[in-house]
């Protein structure tokens, strides 16, 4: 079959993200954007632009309410994400692609060698390369820290019934530092990899075309194509 010359072949696309995953990403993007826009003026209160924006108690209250509303939405998204993961785990359906494995460290090392011109080969990747895994887990824990510390700051009276008071200023520090870390991370790391290195909109479209699959996820491509009936003589199972 592979030998039949085909003049016109439709471009193949590989499904990469489910509809729910794409919506989760959109929700996360929206919430993070709103939270950053309403959070930064609160963090940089000494800056002129922040004082201009938040010049009256009413405005401060309003921006805090927007921040809280977006936080609730993000929390709902996070609970959904975790809940879905736990459910899938219970049903033994949790895709393991995103979990870091030893190979990722080897890939990262290989990548560093490649970037330093010490190696000629870029590592080949499966469904998620180590950079994408770093992105996911960095944001996973970052958002986790932000959600936890955010609620500590929202309900300090309740929290200090159980925990020492020092938790509040620590949470305040962690919340504002982590937000900056996450923002810088998204701009430097995530934006570079999905916009500048190549435009990768698969999180919105849900699919990746064959060329990108071969180029950036060669192992995943091979895995997918190997099991396809089009290449029976390849003996993929052997």
């Amino acid at each position: 079959m592979s030998l039949t010359p085909e003049i016109v072949k439709p471009e193949l696309h590989f499904k990469r993200f489910s509809k729910s995953q794409r919506w989760e990403h959109t929700l996360l993007l929206f919430c993070v954007l709103v939270l950053l826009l309403t959070g930064l003026p609160q963090k940089y209160r000494t800056a002129g632009w922040s004082q201009y924006l938040l010049s009256t108690p009413e405005r401060v209250q309003m921006i805090q309410q927007i921040h809280h509303a977006a936080a609730l939405l993000l929390t709902a998204g996070a609970i959904y994400h975790l809940g879905k993961g736990i459910l899938q785990l219970a049903r033994r359906q949790l895709p393991a692609d995103i979990f870091p494995v030893w190979q990722d460290f080897k890939d990262a090392w290989q990548m560093i060698l490649f970037l330093l011109f010490l190696s000629k080969d870029k590592p080949k990747f499966r469904k998620y390369n180590f950079e994408q895994k770093v992105t996911y887990w960095f944001i996973f824990f970052g958002v986790g820290i932000l959600i936890v510390t955010g609620y500590i700051l929202w309900f300090p009276e309740v929290v200090t019934r159980l925990l020492p008071g020092g938790v509040i200023p620590a949470a305040k520090l962690a919340h504002s530092s982590e937000a900056i870390v996450l923002a810088v991370f998204i701009v430097v790391w995530h934006f570079y990899h999905v916009h500048l290195e190549r435009l990768n909109l698969s999180i919105f479209t849900g699919k990746l075309n064959e060329e990108d699959m071969q180029t950036y996820h060669a192992l995943e491509y091979q895995r997918l194509t190997a099991s396809q009936p089009e290449s029976p003589e390849s003996g993929g199972e052997g």
Binding site: P156, R161, P164, G165, I168, A170
Partner: peptide
């Protein structure tokens, strides 16, 4: 609604150090 632990949420004009407010 503040409780006994609550006042220490304020750093009491201290700079956080390993002795004072180690978490921070």
């Amino acid at each position: 609604e503040a409780d006994a632990n609550f006042p220490t949420a304020w750093l009491s004009h201290y700079e956080p150090s390993p002795e004072k407010y180690p978490i921070v």
